[in-house]
Nucleic acid binder design. Sequence first.
DNA 1: TGATAAGTGTTGCTTAAGCAACAAAATTAA
DNA 2: TTAATTTTGTTGCTTAAGCAACACTTATCA
Lengths: 189, 189
Amino acid sequence: MQEIVENKDIRKIRTRKYIIDAFFELLKKKSFETIRISDITTKAMVNRATFYNHFADKYELFEVVTKEIIMENVRNQLAETTNFCQNTLTNVFVALTNYHNELYALCSYSYDEMASINETILRKEVEQVLFESLKLKYSEKSKQEIQNMASIFSWMLYGAAYEWKNQNELDPVAYFAQTMGSIESILNE
Amino acid sequence: MQEIVENKDIRKIRTRKYIIDAFFELLKKKSFETIRISDITTKAMVNRATFYNHFADKYELFEVVTKEIIMENVRNQLAETTNFCQNTLTNVFVALTNYHNELYALCSYSYDEMASINETILRKEVEQVLFESLKLKYSEKSKQEIQNMASIFSWMLYGAAYEWKNQNELDPVAYFAQTMGSIESILNE
DNA sequence: TGATAAGTGTTGCTTAAGCAACAAAATTAA
DNA sequence: TTAATTTTGTTGCTTAAGCAACACTTATCA
């Protein structure tokens, strides 16, 4: 319970920042797997033991950082669509393409690796948001049913954004409209 | 005596670096006099009290930093001329023009102010180096006489470099050769 | 294979840095 | 000018971070 002491001491904030900065700096040049804790701490000019006061390991560092820095962006865009509507899926999709672009900008060298690590985390986030949104709209449906819808949508959107990144030719909105149009026409056959 | 403990602890090195970096960052935008200690510490993300563990005040900060970063350069170039010779004056002059260029690059906004603050420090440094050099060459002369020569030369060279910066048209070596040529011809009239 | 090395994660003790509060200059405003 | 405000420099106590040493796991390569 004592756990949430919150950063009042500037040293914690500063050290954290420098670790994160150093980490992303390194991600521009080498792959996630080849980055050692000591690489990070050396660049950040902190003791290796200090790293462990902030993060359990480099996986947690990346997870936490991604959630904070990148997903905050996604969340903000998702927040626009409190109630589920036709545009919700498009908005979420656009948010996800932004996420991919930002991630790529942050760690171009190890983008695929990073995207892969984040996949589950991010997809779950999306699922959660969609669940909340769907719940409001379809209050008559069972929780399980809504959960299933949210899950399928999250997979679909995450996957679509990932594929979009690999092609990266069309504007996200156009890409999504086109693809969804095709899917709908097939489902309605 | 315990004073020279030397930096083994990375915190001291790191904090020092961040204070110095923040200081020069600020010098690019505002004048030395308008920079508050708290401006520096805020930017450096350290406590204000910590500043005073490293420096007595911002004047000492600047003095120490200048000596370390900029004058090291000057010293290196001066080191080439251990024994006083015809080229010594030219070398020192060139070193001083480099110093002015570097100082300007570091704090363009407040260059004049900074150059003025450093004047005495730098001139004394030059005087000291010239004194050592002259002493070797003219061991028959009295210490006082050598001291006087070194002093006059230091004023001359410092002033010449300062004037050169204000004109900044000719190549340093050409400027110095030309000016010294004129002076010599007058002295020999 | 077995051994040498390199990286990880943890711990007890030490030290630099943070914080808050203060008096004393120095600015600014009335 | 005087009063209000801001900045400076200092201090006692607290806390985060450094250090060094450790056991342990994971490469490296002879």
